[in-house]
Design a protein around this nucleic acid. Sequence first.
DNA 1: TTGTATGCGTTATCAC
DNA 2: GTGATAACGCATACAA
Lengths: 340, 340
Amino acid sequence: MDKRPTINDVARLAGVSKRTVSRVINGATNVGAATQEKIQKIIDELGFSPDKQARGLAASRSFLLGLIYDNPDALFIDQVQRGVLSVCSEQGYELVVHPCHYTAPDFVENCVKFVKRSNIDGVAILPPVSESKELAQALRDNKINYVRMASVDLDDHTNIVVSDDRAALSDLARYLVSLGHRDIAVISGPQKYYSSIERLEGFRDTLKELGITLPENRIIEGKNSYESGISCARQLLIQNNRPGVIFANNDEMAAGVLKVAHEMGINVPQELSVAGFDDNLLAARVIPSLTTVQRPVTAMASLAAKKIIAMIENRPNDETEDYLVKPHLIIRDSTRKAEK
Amino acid sequence: MDKRPTINDVARLAGVSKRTVSRVINGATNVGAATQEKIQKIIDELGFSPDKQARGLAASRSFLLGLIYDNPDALFIDQVQRGVLSVCSEQGYELVVHPCHYTAPDFVENCVKFVKRSNIDGVAILPPVSESKELAQALRDNKINYVRMASVDLDDHTNIVVSDDRAALSDLARYLVSLGHRDIAVISGPQKYYSSIERLEGFRDTLKELGITLPENRIIEGKNSYESGISCARQLLIQNNRPGVIFANNDEMAAGVLKVAHEMGINVPQELSVAGFDDNLLAARVIPSLTTVQRPVTAMASLAAKKIIAMIENRPNDETEDYLVKPHLIIRDSTRKAEK
DNA sequence: TTGTATGCGTTATCAC
DNA sequence: GTGATAACGCATACAA
């Protein structure tokens, strides 16, 4: 690498002390307008930018943000990364990624070490890892700035961005009922996740409001994987009086439902409506394309980034009040009016 | 953050100078075995690890690796990230991501700045950005360590990992012909990409070896997107004598072909075989599941990481000779013996 | 409004 | 084989 200009070069050329240059760099208020301008000009000419390492060493900051996740949905991860970067890069931060294993025994320690070894200034945590109470506690204990992205309001609002899955599922329920459907089944997500519970309850409660009860045998707990979607769908569709609609907790499982329906010669959506969640890459591509729910991922991610940076620079929590985003229904070809 | 132990703490407790501790940390050879052991013990007890910022400032290194990409395939990106991390994290490096816009006028400068502003030690570049001659040149000019991941051997072998798409496509061609197919069509990728050219040529040349020529009207240039796959498929399938096989340059476009075939009532694979490339998330999920080509992404990524780290630590290029990986054919349900 | 001096935690240059 | 000591580039008490 070529030698970059340092703050000393700027100071020398400007005929001031580096302390003053430092003030300009950090947007100080108490610098004479003339001096200010002179220094800025030289900074521009030299193309000077402060060295992050040195800066960090002196101010004990790294200008690094971390992203912690253990999520099978690559599309979601990618969108979040871009969303976070869109705000953090223009603020001078970089993004360091850290996939982890939620189930590993040392996962909490692993994440804390990740932050410490690089002096990461703050982390964003994706679901489902974001649901870990232990991780959040460990981060607090270590005074590490963090923001969780989740489906439930399980932390202080400065530390979380919540996707209102419950409301979205309520919308979906209303939509399906409006199509005339009464016999509805669900392939839920693992009930150890809050997100799965939220979605199931949002769906079930709204149905109940509309006078429809979801019998227990119409609810099967899946594992959010394609394979799991397949086996759950088999259980639901092998019955004599099969349901008219299946809602699956995510698009992966919904794709599994489509697969099974195809195998069994059940026509979707004529004979069976199917809905998913995520608006995965799959959703628009499968045949028939999936009715699903889309989270405003980019909005969530940039909001999370803003919150983290606000914490780091402990600014007045301006927009920090903002924490709730609402997913919206996307209607495609896999749902249709009930027959008869 | 809590105060972490420093090298001074270790030195004091061990009753040696920090210079000696530094030697131990960096695996120096010229330290007495007893001293060595004593210091190591204290390091372990304290849970000491050297501060990356300070270390970087002194040694002008950051222990940061960069990942540069502009790729619509999130799954590929995710796999690469995990592959790179699997080797770099255990060597004490972190991964900083940098999505960019290949087509933006300042994209080269943008990438160089990215590296410089954080003193990134080296970067891995994903396709198709990796094909940029200008970027590679700029990195060399700035003495930045880099490794490209590509489908063509377009750089020194220390600076590239090549996926032998040509060979893989040759395999695919042989396979299709072995099924009895003679009337074959291609939706190629944009011919401005080497990867697209390699795949098309690998496919076409092998067909020619087998005595089959691919007429020009059986080749349509797509844009690698789902929508583009749809419009190209329409052009190919609307003809009276439609082909028996369509190979699409990637799975996205192949999914588009499936969509069109479905719309037109053409049965896949009974009436039309379809093959893609990537082994995308889609490939196994669509109906029928896609015959495709899988790149050994994790292997490519970790090899790339090893090469970069070797360059950074300018070690003898042990495994640096290694640069070629071969994708392999995955046969699923979208291809079948030709009817006649 | 501006400058001086010191420290951040590590590596590197010498000398011993 | 080991140890003072000076960088590295910047931020920040503390003065002026």
